[in-house]
Design a protein around this nucleic acid. Structure first.
Length: 516
RNA sequence: GCGGAAAUAGCUCAGUUGGUAGAGCAUCAGCUUCCCAAGCUGAGGGUCGCGAGUUCGAAUCUCGUUUUCCGCUCCA
């Protein structure tokens, strides 16, 4: 089966069994926005719990936080998001290539500068030691002409960028006769601005409302609460703050199902360390996070690190953990050494001193930060992809297929199904009795419709790890059978022991013990 | 955002040269059956993505639009 087909089946399965629905579907949907259905939300919650507990329970020096989606707008100036996400873009209609309008103009200006430099170099060669560059630049006709051209364009360009005058940017490109490097034509579209942050207005719109953004990452909520947490929690460096929450990015193209959405959820942990120790901690968290993924048992060979060659403005080291999706290796988690960029910026923009006094060193410093950042939705998709199986089943010489989601029991949306073998003779009552005993601790489903085989298949399709079957004998001896999802084997156990057996098997300790 | 393709019941799909929409599975109500789907009976469910246009008449032809998929592009 082709890999793309697997992906398509996965998407169909997600919808058919209540994991993921397109948003606003009865209104034709909303592009790249999805809702989690009755089973999806359970799986998602379990994923979040697995992450949260692995951070909060397993590390004494990591604490949680839940910061707001709305934050003071200046935070996004400090973080660099306001500037970095306001690119004016223009398309060439012939080559279909997209460019940043400002980059096209800057390249053009760069070429003029090159021309001037060429003249200068030539002249220096000719005149030798007696060459005076300043005088040459002020007197040479060709240079002056280039310089004049440069100044004119640069002035217009600077003003246009300052005003974000998109029409003027386009006019500059036309006036300068800038051509597309690919097609060589001047057939340009309008300049459009893609602001990757969603904005809205806070306060009554009539009287000076404040423009606020929906956060494009959860990290800044942690940085701006650094002092609060450190002081009230009496935290000593090194320590971490973990947070799970929604983030929003107005992506130009959001596609591939829930892999890239405009509204998504992140699980981030910012770990504050001594300056100079950040790369060591970077390595430590790399290993820890990788072991967290591998503990799920989806095959070590399906994971790899991808080192970033081009680093973001705030980072001095960055690596992705990639998983082999049906559509290739893709990022599921990023680990970044963010230096002290963020805290320094907030110190600068807020005017508040954000420092840590290190009693061991007897000095104050701005902590360095190592970040682990994972997308919940990508993790969800990754788990669906890893667990989706189509199997051939032999029974009484009949061949037959089943679709089964082999979730680790700790993550499964429904932990067990309770199934009376027959819909009569007191079996449903007995099954209900068991259900009422277990429903407080486990997500259970009761099903008495159709043949037992059909009911097993239904539970397989949503990844329920255990099916408890109540038969005639159960009424007499208080024993039931547990049917295991992956092996389809059955085990007869006493009803009294059911709770402990299930609790043991879904205990995330099994996963936690594999994390370094 | 550009180019290409697609959209009919919950799912997979039929639907003739334009004449008021069908199957299988699924769902629901019964019956039958002591452990791995597709036994029997019955029922519900679609203004054919949406909006215009052509036509006596449009699921079918034309245009627009929305969504999805595939490429390109973008992704601090």
């Amino acid at each position: 089966m082709a890999q793309e087909d697997v992906f398509k089946k996965l998407v169909a399965h997600c919808k058919e069994y209540g994991f993921v629905f397109p948003s606003s579907e009865i209104y034709d949907g909303l592009a790249a926005v999805y809702d989690y259905g009755q089973h999806g939300v359970e799986l998602k919650n379990n994923i979040k719990k697995y992450w949260w507990d692995s951070m909060i329970l397993l590390h004494e020096n990591v604490v949680g936080l839940d910061s707001s989606i709305f934050m003071h707008p200046t935070i996004w100036k400090a973080s660099g998001h306001v500037d970095a996400f306001n690119d004016p873009l223009i398309d060439n209609k012939d080559s279909k290539k997209r460019y940043r309008a400002d980059v096209l103009i800057e390249d053009y200006l760069g070429k003029i500068e090159d021309k001037i430099l060429k003249e200068v170099t030539k002249a220096r060669k000719r005149f030798g030691d007696s060459f005076d560059e300043k005088v040459f630049r002020e007197t040479n006709g060709r240079v002056l002409e280039h310089q004049k051209q440069f100044d004119t364009v640069h002035t217009r360009y600077a003003k246009a960028m300052n005003d974000m005058d998109l029409n003027e940017l386009r006019q500059i490109i036309i006036d300068c006769e800038i051509v597309c490097p690919v097609s060589g034509t001047k057939n340009w579209t309008e300049v459009r601005q893609f602001n990757l942050m969603f904005s809205t207005e806070m306060g009554s719109t009539s009287e000076g409302a404040l423009k606020v953004y929906l956060r494009p990452e959860t990290a800044q909520g942690i940085f701006v609460n650094y002092l609060n947490v450190q002081k009230t929690g009496r935290m000593k460096i090194p320590f971490g703050i973990a947070q799970i929450g929604k983030a929003f990015r107005n992506e130009i193209v959001a596609r591939q199902f829930i892999f890239r959405m405009r509204e998504f959820e992140q699980m981030e942990m910012q770990f504050f360390v001594r300056p100079g120790s950040e790369l060591q901690w970077f390595e430590t968290w790399k290993a820890t996070r990788m072991s967290w993924h591998k503990a799920l048992g989806f095959g070590d060979e399906n994971y790899r690190f991808h080192e970033h060659e081009k680093l973001a403005h705030y980072a001095n080291a960055a690596v992705d953990i990639e998983y082999r999706f049906p559509f290739g290796f893709k990022e599921v988690e990023g680990i970044h050494s963010r230096t002290n960029f963020d805290l320094s910026q907030h110190q600068k923009f807020s005017g508040k001193k954000i420092q840590y006094f290190d009693p061991e060193l007897n000095e104050s410093y701005t902590p360095y930060v190592v970040e682990t950042s994972i997308g919940v939705d990508r993790m969800f998709l990754q788990i669906m992809a890893a667990c989706y199986c189509e199997e051939t089943v032999e029974n009484d010489g009949k061949t037959d297929t089943r679709v089964v989601l082999k979730f680790p029991p700790a993550l499964a949306p429904v932990k067990l199904a309770i199934l009376p073998l027959m819909k009569k003779d007191g079996l449903p009552e007995k099954a209900r009795e068991i259900m009422n005993e277990l429903k407080f601790d486990f997500n259970c489903q009761y099903d008495e419709k159709d043949t037992i085989g059909k009911r097993y298949r239904r539970q397989d399709a949503i990844g329920t790890p255990f099916c408890v079957t109540v038969d005639y004998q159960s009424v007499e001896d208080n024993c039931v059978t547990i049917r295991y999802r992956d092996t389809m084997l059955q085990e007869r156990v006493s009803i009294d022991k059911l709770h402990d057996i299930i609790a043991e098997k879904i205990n995330p300790k099994v996963l936690f013990s594999k994390i370094v």
